[in-house]
Design a protein around this nucleic acid. Structure first.
Lengths: 254, 254
DNA sequence: CGAGAGAGTTGATCCAGGTTAAGTACGTGG
DNA sequence: CCACGTACTTAACCTGGATCAACTCTCTCG
């Protein structure tokens, strides 16, 4: 991603990881990561279990479906997509993950069932499950923190099920743009102007559409003066109108 | 539901609930519920936090979207659907829940975001979150047990996202029938003959289809000799052919 | 036992969005 | 600075499944 604001974050991470010992207390994401409600004391204990990982290049995988699930990952910079693959090679993107978010909650019998691929040069903190489990038995708030994040994940996926089952293509794309805007905004980036880290193809796949449809819709939104899109740079011109496009009648009636 | 086998379970539950003090050790579902890996000692402690709830009639709600999330529920008999509702009254069924399964993992900031409705007269055990949290800080395996169930939930929803985004109507219905067969089978009921607890309308909603489409597909499957359906009673005649219908090319190409 | 209500089926028609097929713009390496 | 590959756009056409509209079957209730 190339947000002006985000470049700063990248800078900070590079410094943290390469020259200074990792510190949760000073991390720019600390408010977004797990140890939100921890005391200084508990935070120190939390820091002990956090490992740093070498940056993951664009296209590289954080983990693969089928691998044992051994850690959660906090995204410090960059972005990821989670991909579910069927036996016959079909792929479905089930989520995009932005800085400040946690990934690694998927899996059955401690085996991941999706592959998480970096969309950019990305950096993450690794939180080994074993340590996290042990620590959360000691630290009151931590366990609840983890549950909260997982519950939110479940709820988000349920919202996505509704989107895919009941909404028109137009509503899906509008929701997608609003969701991106919201997520980036709540992490301190601009709500109205941002870069898409993912290709049109990825967006289409995620939304259950054809890439051509996404392209057509973007054009239509531009013609209506709702957004301006230049390659991967998006500017939201009329938020209200964008929201209207979500609610639009369509999809299967109930 | 009216499986011959399930009637037994209902019997047992009625006895448990109405005449005998609830006992996890003797519960017919104990292998399916949370305390799978607990020692006798820990099981006793687990039993202490479990509450019983009065049976929930068909159409009644276990909990509503917007309510505070205070417990998990183990389904002892009957069945439920989880429904997400949008502001404009649109409804999407995001899951069906069978005996032996746990519900209550949805929610953001400890508020449920879906409503869980009984599809039959149903009985559940209530596991208050507060107690569960406290206990899982003491009992080694319990915390992992809860994580495991939540992770499976997330993975199942991801599979559902793939289904809705990429599969044809035929493939969706075939998957649905196979999944039901599998889930009931793994709980000791017949894999080849079972009752649908939910209406055609519910099935259609869940699969992102129109009820008419589900009806037509059932007819088509019957004509192909794959299943026999009589009102809500389903008999799978040719499992292999049913599986073929899942893999069938179709949906959006990747 | 007949009327009415839900639930399910079936058939006819239509359209959102997929598919196919050219394009165009960018960006990198030679 | 040109050539080639990749990402994206645009247009024409086609189809799976939604919608609309009867109709049937069961069950319930008076």
């Amino acid at each position: 991603m190339n947000f002006p604001a985000q470049e700063q974050v990248n800078e900070m991470n590079l410094i943290n990881i390469e020259s200074v010992k990792l510190s949760c207390k000073n991390c720019s994401l600390s408010e977004l990561c797990l140890p939100r409600s921890l005391s200084d004391d508990d935070l120190a204990r939390f820091e002990e279990i956090v490992d740093t990982r070498p940056p993951i290049p664009k296209g590289g995988a954080l983990y693969h479906a089928g691998e044992a699930s051994q850690a959660l990952y906090a995204i410090k910079s960059g972005a990821f997509k989670s991909v579910v693959t069927t036996e016959d090679g079909e792929e479905q993107i089930v989520g995009f993950h932005m800085p400040g978010e946690l990934v690694g909650f998927d899996g059955v019998e401690s085996v991941h069932n999706c592959t998480v691929v970096s969309l950019d040069r990305s950096t993450v903190c690794e939180l080994p499950l074993r340590d996290l489990e042990a620590l959360s038995r000691k630290v009151e708030g931590l366990q609840r923190e983890v549950y909260t994040v997982m519950r939110r994940e479940i709820s988000q996926e349920q919202a996505m099920l509704l989107l895919l089952a009941r909404r028109t293509a137009e509503s899906r794309l509008a929701s997608f743009l609003l969701s991106l805007s919201h997520r980036l905004g709540s992490r301190g980036f601009s709500r109205n102007e941002f870069n898409l880290v993912m290709s049109r193809h990825d967006i289409a796949n995620y939304l259950g559409l054809a890439a051509e449809t996404v392209s057509r819709l973007i054009t239509r939104f531009q013609e209506s003066g709702i957004v301006e899109v230049n390659r991967r740079r998006v500017t939201i011109l009329d938020l209200a109108m964008l929201k209207e496009r979500v609610g639009q009648p369509g999809g299967t009636k109930v």
